[in-house]
Design a protein around this nucleic acid. Structure first.
Lengths: 209, 209
DNA sequence: GGAAATTTATACTCGATGGTACAAAAATCT
DNA sequence: AGATTTTTGTACCATCGAGTATAAATTTCC
């Protein structure tokens, strides 16, 4: 044996090298699914938007469903990372929550990709027929609940929130208000309206603080 | 001329009479779209669920898209009527809001039709590619905003809420929390969890009252 | 340089699906 | 009763879209 000399770092994997970066291709796929949804996004359009041919897509991602799942996961991970970063950088509770709402208002307003949220407005539909989608969605919601809960808890620790502050409830409240934000955006709400929503959402989340 | 003798009440409309009730057939279509979404609901499945043949569906409703639009409208109207009834019958602000959340928790939990909300979880996706869907969704959101606003206003009039209570903001808050409720249901949340959400939502909406 | 391996591109297959033609059935009008 | 009108059901069509066969291209290994 001892035939492969390059499975480790450095050396290329043997045959003709890929002419594209899978992650940036996946980002393009995200945008298409975001706009059209799973079924309406046909594989020709996906491949073309990704800048490659159908066989390349199938070789790299398996099939349409797997591509969809990977797109959802990538979108979800990126969103969570952004939120975490915003919350960690926030100088106060109010600033952090406001930053998240403003950020999501932009992301959801249709400037960057489709309008609305890929998970809230698109994955939600397929959650019923594709079990893995439901799981991704469930996990995404739980992760946000957790992130917000921890953030609010840190507010108690910092003395910015009273000891008895209902962190879990307000965290889930915040999560649900973001869903509403996404839906309104998909229905055509302007960035201004979304910012307004964010402002009163912040008030409600911090009520009693 | 003067050929038609029955366009008015009473007399049947001339040819072979329909063997089905369009409204109950539409209700069946609602359930199918609710579960599967627009594209995944194929016309054979729709016709069969509606208890009739494809040509009958097309004769009665036009085509798949029109059937979908009518289903969305019917679903929306029914939902609004239910909410209005609950609010009008409520003895207090808290009771009314709680009733709406409990009602929606049930409706959305998957017992009656698909899980989640047909508008929030299904129409949202097609809102991007089918303009009329976006309009129906937008109108539905606005109608709920208005209903909740009027309800809260009546609370001020009754002296149950302080004069300066931010009715519009809380109304839109309530609306968005219902979207979140629907999404969680579609993601698999149990009826218990949904009720919990409803309880803390009620608190948040009435905060400061 | 040649063999092996892997990606790319063109062109194709084949099943599913939205929609319909056509004839039989069931009603009204005269 | 017969003409007319509309619905019903079967069977069909045409298109679209997911996935692939195949051969050329590009790389590493020996």
């Amino acid at each position: 044996m001892v035939q492969k000399s390059c499975t480790e770092a450095g050396g290329r994997p043997r045959g003709r090298p890929r002419s594209f970066d899978p992650d940036t291709a996946l980002d393009r796929a995200v945008e298409v699914f975001w706009r059209l949804g799973f079924e309406a996004a046909d594989t020709d359009a996906l491949a073309s938007a990704m800048g490659l041919t159908k066989p390349s897509v199938y070789a790299a991602f398996g099939n349409k469903e797997q591509l969809y799942l990977k797109a959802l996961q990538r979108y979800g991970q990126r969103g969570r990372a952004e939120i975490t970063a915003l919350l960690e950088a926030a100088p106060s509770m109010r600033a952090g929550i406001n930053a998240v709402f403003n950020h999501m208002a932009e992301r959801v307003s249709g400037q960057h990709g489709g309008s609305g949220c890929l998970l809230t407005c698109v994955a939600a539909q397929s959650a019923h027929s594709m079990l893995p989608v439901r799981e991704i969605l469930e996990a995404g919601i739980a992760a946000r609940d957790k992130a917000f809960t921890e953030f609010l808890r840190s507010g108690i620790a910092r003395g910015e929130l009273p000891a008895g502050f209902p962190v879990e409830r307000r965290a889930s409240l915040m999560n649900d208000l973001l869903s509403g934000l996404a839906l309104r955006a998909r229905a055509g709400a302007s960035l201004e309206e979304l910012r307004e929503i964010g402002a009163s959402a912040t008030e409600a989340i911090l009520a009693g603080a």
